[in-house]
Amino acid sequence: MTDRELRTESDVGSSASLLTLICELARWSHGAAAVSVAIIDGNGLEYVASSGAGADEIVGTRLGAGEGLAGFVAATGQSLAVRDAVSDPRFNREVAERTGYVPNAIQIVPILDADGDVTGVMSMLDRGHHDDVPNDPPFALPGFADLAAALLTRSQPDGGRVVEVARRLDEMSSRDRGAALTAISAVLDAIAR
């Protein structure tokens, strides 16, 4: 049995702005007050992206292991929906008050890496807080968590190799690039068969 590998902070940092966009899309889709992403860093969680109420304040906040509802989801890998959050003993009021927004309802889902291990959590505060929402959200919250997972996975070492290959293709003459793409396509086709 082997342990999973964790990304480095710099990997995540390069994806933070795209993660923020995913949070923004999730928040808009569900009319939520806020959506955030926290990733496991060492033995705690760090909020790396957020959209909505308290977004500026929550990013950079760290939670120790076992702290708050997010810590619970990170540890157990089980999603959680709490309607009356402030009365829940797992709720970390101190963090909420620091952001200037104390929610009523919270939904938190795990973000899984390519191996299926928990790599972070996505939290949504007060779904339906805004009336101006689409009739059919593109995803439920777990779907947005999958998007975030895909983005975070892309920033792992294999993703870096893809970027490197793309850079080298860009540097080639158009004739060489055409030949290289033909060769790569043939290899991909062979693997796909």
């Binding site: 342990d3 999973r4 964790l6 033995n43 292991a65 540890a75 157990t76 291990d117």
Partner: peptide, 11 residues
């Protein structure tokens, strides 16, 4: 099996 260590809980 679920403690303060958030890593590798499946192990």
């Amino acid at each position: 099996v679920l403690g303060a260590d958030l890593k590798g809980s499946a192990f």
